[in-house]
Amino acid sequence: MAGVDWKKAYHDLESHIEHIMKETSTLVHNAVPELRINEVARNDQNGLLEIIIDATGARMKYALYLIDRTGKHETIKRPYQQSNTFLLDVPGGKYTLQAFVQEDGAADQTASVKINFRHDRVDDDE
């Protein structure tokens, strides 16, 4: 409509948008995802117990304890590794799994979760 200096307003808006984008850039750079374990999946891989730790965070590494709840077998402790997948050769039974995730270079930033499950091992020759 007559009277609005759209060209002048547009140039000002361009500058305004640039400042918004700069602010957004700062926010994104400073945004750190909260470290957490989303899910621990278990699968049978040809008789082996496959554990996959699904987590959110930055530059993560993963570890686990597998505790035999009947006490017949020694606890398995797998140290921190880059991969979120563990393959364990364990007999069937009742276990407690404690999964850990840590941000690389930040030993004080750790999340963990405990789950109980029954592992029914299916051997190849059965």
Partner: peptide, 12 residues
């Protein structure tokens, strides 16, 4: 007026 209000309302 010219940078904020005019373009906001679209009218003068």
């Amino acid at each position: 007026k010219e940078l904020y209000v005019d373009p906001y309302t679209g009218v003068v």
